[in-house]
């Protein structure tokens, strides 16, 4: 049986009167890419922000690598966060830093006693693997949307995470760049042995990157399984229309 690396049970979250998550159950297995699909505003991003401790849950349990997130002290949470890479929707690169400094920033603060040569080797290696070695001295404002995403992913990989969380990795990108990002996501899993949750509303991305997909509707997962199981035999009209809109339109 595959080992669970993250587990959510009965997870609820509200913002004021708005109930976003209403009893979410989900398991992430070691080495898998799990895609969470849902409409905008359905709570997909909230889900992974709770997983990494950026938001607090209302009820339920969230276990990551055998630890209940809400019970961790800040120091323990930070230690766990080092094993989780979070790629933000808008890349969240630090505006005032070059690409090199963006990548160096989390590394030097979390890994002590690295020599200049070791830091440079690590940064250059990662930039090579995301295909942007020439951007090392550029500022984020000089990069395109796709390049920012790649650098954002490279920055999260610098701490060798075991879990990768991608928040809308293909949002706002052209179809060719989307394909490149999808390839990068699968490549990251293979090269770095990560388990991933990919948040998206893009079915092409889901089909290309996901081992399993989970569809979030009305604050709950209505279907979880392989892509073909979930969509090709879907009975729920909303899931069907999601598929039709993405692939027929």
């Amino acid at each position: 049986m595959m080992e669970k690396i993250a587990e959510m049970k009965g997870l609820t979250k509200s913002f004021g009167d708005l109930k976003v998550l209403q009893g979410v159950d989900l398991d992430l297995y070691k080495g898998e890419n799990l895609v969470v699909l849902g409409k905008s505003g359905s709570g997909k991003s909230v889900l992974i922000k709770i997983l990494v401790g950026l938001l607090k849950k209302d009820e339920g349990s969230v276990m990551v690598m055998g630890k209940e997130i809400s019970e961790l002290k800040l120091k323990e949470l930070n230690a766990l966060r080092l094993k989780i890479g979070f790629s933000f929707q808008n890349s969240a690169l630090y505006d005032s830093m070059t690409v090199r400094e963006n990548m160096e920033f989390p590394l030097v603060r979390n890994v002590k006693n690295l020599t200049r040569k070791e830091i440079d080797t690590k940064i250059e290696g990662l930039l090579d693997s995301v295909g942007l070695p020439q951007s090392i001295n550029q500022m984020p404002s000089e990069l395109s949307g796709g390049q920012k995403k790649r650098i954002g992913i490279a920055r999260t990989l610098i701490l060798n995470p075991q879990i990768m969380l991608y928040d809308e990795p293909t949002a706002g990108l052209d179809p060719i760049t989307c394909v490149e990002i999808n390839t990068l996501i699968t490549q990251v899993r293979e090269e770095y042995n990560t388990s991933s949750i990919v948040i998206t509303h893009d079915l092409t991305c889901a089909k290309a990157t996901g081992d399993r997909v989970a569809v979030l509707l009305d604050g709950q997962f209505k279907a979880v399984g392989e892509f073909s199981e979930v969509f090709e035999n879907a009975t729920d009209e909303r899931i069907k229309s999601f598929y039709d809109y993405n692939f027929i339109q």
Binding site: L54, F88, A92, D95, R109
Partner: peptide
């Protein structure tokens, strides 16, 4: 303005998830 724009563009969250 600088800190606020860092918050809006999730740069502050990015620091938190990097244990900074």
């Amino acid at each position: 303005a600088e800190i606020s724009s860092m918050k809006v563009t999730e740069q502050i969250d990015a620091m938190e998830v990097s244990a900074i």
